[in-house]
C-alpha cells in the first residue's frame, strides 16, 4: 500500500506516493529523476548513494522513502545555483578529483557537510569525513587536495541552504 509523504528536495517541496519498502535512493532516482545519487551496493557499504538529510549525510539506499517524510534533502543536483557551480564542485573539476565519476556525487556531498561545519578541516578530518565513500579510481589523493583547496571564504554563499 502506497503512503503519501511530503519532503523538501533541493529546496523544492514534493508530495509523493511511495511504497513502504521503497528506499529513498529509488524514490530520488525513479520518481524525481535525480540520478546523481548512484547505486553501488544497495547495502550501505560504498557511499555512492550519499545525500544530505537535515544537514547530515545518509546512505540513501538504507533510508526508507517514508523515513524522509518531513525532511530536507539535498542531492548533488541541488548544489549548483544561479551563481554557478558550488566551490567544491569547481575544486573537484580543477584538481582532477574525478575519474569515472561514480563516487563523485557522494564524495562532494560528504565534503560539503564537513566544510559546512568545519570550514578549515585538517587532512585527518577530511579523510575521516570521507571515509564512508569508496573510490576505486583515484587513490583519493586528488579528492583530499580538492577539499583542501576550498577555503573558508569560498564556501560562504552555498552554506546557507540545507
Amino acid at each position: 500500500m502506497k503512503k503519501i509523504i511530503r519532503l523538501t528536495v533541493n529546496n523544492e517541496e514534493h508530495q509523493l506516493a511511495v511504497e513502504p519498502n521503497q528506499t529513498l535512493l529509488d524514490m530520488l532516482r525513479d520518481q524525481l529523476g535525480l540520478t546523481g545519487a548512484k547505486k553501488g551496493c544497495e547495502m550501505g557499504e560504498c557511499g555512492a548513494c550519499t545525500v544530505i538529510m537535515d544537514g547530515i549525510t545518509v546512505n540513501s539506499c538504507l533510508v526508507l522513502a517514508m523515513q524522509a517524510n518531513g525532511k530536507r534533502i539535498t542531492t548533488i543536483e541541488g548544489l549548483e545555483t544561479e551563481q554557478g557551480l558550488h566551490p567544491i564542485q569547481k575544486a573537484f573539476i580543477e584538481k582532477g578529483a574525478i575519474q569515472c565519476g561514480f563516487c563523485t556525487s557522494g564524495m562532494i556531498l560528504s565534503a560539503k557537510v564537513l566544510l559546512d561545519k568545519n570550514p578549515k578541516p585538517t587532512e585527518e578530518e577530511i579523510r575521516s569525513a570521507l571515509s564512508g565513500n569508496l573510490c576505486r579510481c583515484t587513490g583519493y589523493q586528488k579528492i583530499v587536495e580538492a577539499v583542501q583547496s576550498v577555503s573558508e571564504d569560498d564556501v560562504g554563499p552555498a552554506r546557507q541552504e540545507s
Binding site: 540520478t35 548533488i76 543536483e77 557551480l85 564542485q89 573539476i93 582532477g96 565519476g101 563523485t104
Partner: peptide, 12 residues
C-alpha cells in the same frame, strides 16, 4: 580539466 568533469561533478 577533463572534458567530462563538469557533468560528473553535477550529477548530470
Amino acid at each position: 580539466p577533463r572534458v567530462d568533469a563538469p557533468d560528473k561533478a553535477t550529477g548530470r
